[in-house]
Amino acid sequence: MGNEELIVKLQELFPAASIIQGNDWPEISFESGADFLSTIDVLKSDQTLAFDYLFCETCVDWKTHFTMVYHLDSTRFRHNIVLKYKLDRETPEIDSLSFVYRTSEQHEREIFDLFGIIFKGHPNLKRILLTEDWVGYPLRKDYDDPINMIKL
């Protein structure tokens, strides 16, 4: 499907979400509180979408809130979308995708490690890159470490 068709199709499926055309691919964003797992389920199992390949999963700290960003690809149709999900800063929680896309098990551990997002239902949520006793979440914008970090 081309990007325009995709946008039309997605608007049909998710009337509540805001969909725009990004730089490369359509971007679909959800506010916090939306049912995330069922969204993913539709995106993955719909016969004309078939987004079966999660190639990038990350998080952005916007100081007031977090945004989870998922890049999805379809190995059958070769179309891509960007999926965004807003999280609030005090209780950043989202459903884990580790049973939908196995790759996200490791990605989510990394995001938990560096951003402190809690993934509900993750089988093994603990720090992966830093040591267990590390304090703080380094990729957050307000992270400060006067000992290890030498600022220019």
């Binding site: 830093l130 380094p138 992270y143 470490d145 290890n148 970090m149 030498i150 600022k151 220019l152």
Partner: peptide, 10 residues
């Protein structure tokens, strides 16, 4: 990796 890194031993 001297500047602005939080995990590198200098």
């Amino acid at each position: 990796f001297f500047y602005n890194t939080y995990s590198v031993v200098k």
